[in-house]
Design a protein around this nucleic acid. Structure first.
Lengths: 143, 143
DNA sequence: CAAATGTAATTGATATATCAAGTAAATTTC
DNA sequence: GAAATTTACTTGATATATCAATTACATTTG
């Protein structure tokens, strides 16, 4: 069998797609809140949903812990959240959203929703299920 | 309809999958050639297949031109390739693989092939086609 | 309980992503 | 054919990715 050119595999469509989606998302987010990134937005939303530590949130959004530390530092600097030491276990960091952060979430929720709808326009539930299924299997193959 | 948590969308499976694949690929590449990245490997392989300019190769692998400039600079520093000015159009950069670069390609070709096979293990041709199809539609939706 | 081991997070070094602004060469327009 | 526009690439600034090494605290073991 001939060697396929790097971009002729479906794996590169995956890259292409996620880049296109991230670009769209960032552009729309910037129009509503100019000084926040897509990743920061997702982190804010994840904090709100749970009461997890920094590391647990990192796992949820597939971030390396080192990246997470740095993203959180920037978010703290921008006043979106506060880092608090967990009193039960002083190694752990709890993240608390500031008022500014809450306002940002409120403003961006519709944007995030719209981005997803835009991306998944006319992709049926069944197709999404299949996509999810195949992606999960590929992920497992890689682990 | 309730607002979905950021990670409950298929869009985050896409991120998860590509990260897992890149990690696997990088680990296997490093075992064979310790000082090259996955992106650099793909660029080398794309140069070999075509006779394209730097910008054209950037487009093929979905790289921003600024990123491409920097990646190419590092690759030149490591001796994998040379940057040559196109004499027909002096704005354009042609990329030439060095002997060292050629050896690297030869060594890594089986690794790249194996990585793809690992990732796509037991994903049928039909599933790959469908995956490709849906991903392309999502990409278009985002553009 | 002191030593060994494990865990959560940080830091350093290097690579890549992205946008905006800039440069130099080529092409178009008037 | 000089001025305006476009094209190919570069540079600066900032954000994120990744691995390895380190720190601080927690838990386990002997």
């Amino acid at each position: 069998m001939r060697f396929k050119t790097p971009t002729s595999t479906v794996l590169y469509s995956i890259e292409e797609t996620i880049k296109a989606y991230r670009k769209l998302s960032q552009q729309n987010i910037t129009q509503v809140v100019p000084d926040i990134t897509l990743d920061q937005t997702l982190i804010l939303m994840m904090i709100k949903e749970n009461d997890k530590t920094q590391t647990e949130i990192a796992d949820l959004i597939f971030k390396d812990y080192a990246s997470m530390t740095r993203i959180v530092k920037l978010m703290e600097r921008k006043g979106f959240l506060l880092k608090l030491v967990d009193n039960q276990d002083k190694r752990k960091v709890k993240l608390e959203i500031t008022e500014k952060g809450k306002k940002v979430i409120k403003k961006l929720k519709p944007t995030v929703k719209k981005n997803r709808e835009t991306a998944l326009h006319e992709i049926s539930e069944e197709e999404q299920r299949q996509l999810f299924n195949v992606l999960k299997r590929i992920t497992k193959n890689c682990q």
